[in-house]
């Protein structure tokens, strides 16, 4: 860790309001609904996730953390799904072979989606209880982004200045 990087203290479950817990849980659950709507081209769920994040990020750091973690973790899954759809169509249209590489990719995408689903459900349950849950990579990335104390964050209040003479 670098010397200057400090982090905000994490809130404990009893310090988080019910509303925040529900909003944090909603970040994960909403993805399931929008993934269904976003098929076959998973663009809609990405848009929904981004909107959800921007609506909720100012509520509290706890909500922001979960909304952002959910958003970030679904980017790669969505892109992989989209690639799988596009690749499959390409094969169908150009009458190429369904290669082993393609089959392997498809299985990988299925595995990725399963992992994403399972971890999202766990995270939703934890969030509802006011706890944190860190995904591999995405958890740390989100924590670093949300809870790091930034220099500019120190003086949030802008001071009104008279016009320069």
């Amino acid at each position: 860790m670098m010397n200057e990087v400090t982090y905000h203290q994490l809130p404990q479950p009893d310090e988080i309001s019910e509303r925040e817990k529900e909003d944090a849980m909603g970040a994960y659950l909403m993805m399931f609904a929008s993934i269904g709507a976003g098929l076959p081209l998973p663009i809609i769920n990405m848009i929904a996730a981004i909107i959800y994040y921007y609506l909720n990020r100012s509520k509290s750091l706890f909500v922001k953390f979960h909304a952002l973690q959910s958003l970030l973790s679904q980017f790669p899954t969505s892109i992989m799904n989209a690639a799988a759809v596009i690749w499959s169509f390409r094969i169908l249209i150009t009458e190429m072979e369904f290669s082993d590489l393609w089959k392997g990719y498809l299985i990988m995408v299925v595995v990725a989606n399963l992992i994403y689903f399972i971890f999202s459900i766990v995270a939703a349950v934890k969030a509802r209880k006011g706890r944190f849950y860190y995904f591999l990579f995405f958890g740390k990335l989100t924590y670093d982004h949300v809870y790091r104390v930034r220099a500019e964050a120190e003086d949030m209040s802008t001071v009104n200045q008279p016009p320069k003479i």
Partner: peptide, 29 residues
């Protein structure tokens, strides 16, 4: 922290890369 984030990213990439490669070379269907 940054280093550990990159390490995690690497782990993820390796895991999925291995899954892809494994199912490519040992097709289960």
């Amino acid at each position: 922290m940054r280093a550990s984030i990159f390490r995690d990213l690497l782990i993820l990439l390796v895991i999925f890369g291995v899954i892809w490669a494994a199912f490519t070379y040992f097709p289960i269907f």
